[in-house]
């Protein structure tokens, strides 16, 4: 019983980070209906950036998002104007071909620069663990979860209170009507893509406090975030958080109770089942 609660706790904390990653994906997919296969590799890229900055200047991984967030935003905007913009009017398969190309490109370029071996930062300020009622909570995971939730809340505020945020939501609801009231769709799309990519920078910095990174990592985060998105459906930010926690907890439970190798199995099975049984997700509007 103790292991169950313990792994549920760990998984739920991890799930908050998953939710943050998925928020970026859901901005990109929900707003411009672009299928981004490279999203997981943006996570991988930002983890490498965190590693690079952390090891070069001795900055703690938690603080790297201060630099990697704008960096990833620029990468996202450049990626949008360079390749995504040209495929908006194409069939979705062309978009997938392009983002798969981007995925391969990111993976190859990180391999080229940092070689294939896993990289990790030596230590983080937020080390150690705290004990509550006999359960062990890793401080790094707890802080990661809290920061993720704060970031999700921040994005949620940005989307509902500021003009650019409202423009993003308007473009997602009805592009033609939004264009009529003066929303420049290309800027809005670029902003959404940039923001979606930049969110992975926060997640990447947080993940680097307790994980290592290797170039093949993108696949896992890519499918994982699509799974969370399928479970949550489009349009509900709290739903995203709950789904992230469900997926994280399921992953962690299957590792503790069944077999460590089964973690991805459970995630993908949830994914497939959700698509069969409830295609618009648990909390989806569309």
């Amino acid at each position: 019983m103790d292991t169950v609660v313990q792994s549920l706790l760990n998984g739920a904390l991890m799930g908050c980070v998953y939710a943050l990653i998925t928020l970026g994906l859901s901005l990109i997919f929900g707003v411009m209906n672009v299928v981004n296969f490279a999203h997981g590799d943006f996570v991988m890229l930002s983890m490498y950036f965190a590693f690079f900055i952390g090891s070069m200047w001795g900055v703690d991984a938690v603080f790297t998002p201060a630099i990697t967030f704008p960096l990833l935003f620029i990468v996202g905007v450049v990626a949008y104007y360079a390749i995504i913009d040209g495929t908006l009017r194409q069939k979705y398969v062309t978009q997938i071909a392009v983002t798969v190309g981007l995925m391969t490109f990111l993976r190859a370029i990180t391999q080229l620069m940092w070689k294939a071996q896993p990289r990790a930062l030596p230590y983080s300020l937020i080390q150690g663990s705290i004990h509550i009622a006999g359960y062990n909570i890793m401080l790094s995971r707890l802080i990661s979860a809290v920061v993720s939730i704060l970031a999700i809340g921040g994005v949620s505020l940005f989307l509902s209170k500021t003009w650019p945020g409202r423009a993003i939501r308007a473009a997602s609801d009805d592009l033609d009507a939004a264009s009529l009231v003066g929303v420049n769709y290309r800027w809005t799309y670029a902003l959404a893509f940039g923001l979606g990519s930049a969110l992975t920078a926060i997640a990447g910095g947080l993940l680097m406090t307790f994980q290592q990174v290797d170039p093949t990592m993108g696949v896992r985060f890519g499918l994982l975030s699509w799974c969370v998105l399928a479970l949550a459906g489009l349009g509900s930010i709290p739903g995203l958080l709950i789904s992230g926690i469900i997926v994280g907890a399921a992953e962690s439970l299957s590792m503790a109770l069944w077999d460590p190798r089964a973690r991805s199995l459970i995630v993908y099975l949830i994914f497939i089942l959700v698509l069969w049984v409830r295609p618009r997700g648990l909390f989806g509007r569309k």
Binding site: A97, G101, M103, F105, A108, I109, L112, K115
Partner: peptide
């Protein structure tokens, strides 16, 4: 080592 993949992926993107 991975330069071939960089070139390969750029070619893929350009074709698409």
């Amino acid at each position: 080592e991975s330069l071939y993949l960089v070139i390969y992926s750029v070619v893929l993107i350009l074709i698409a």
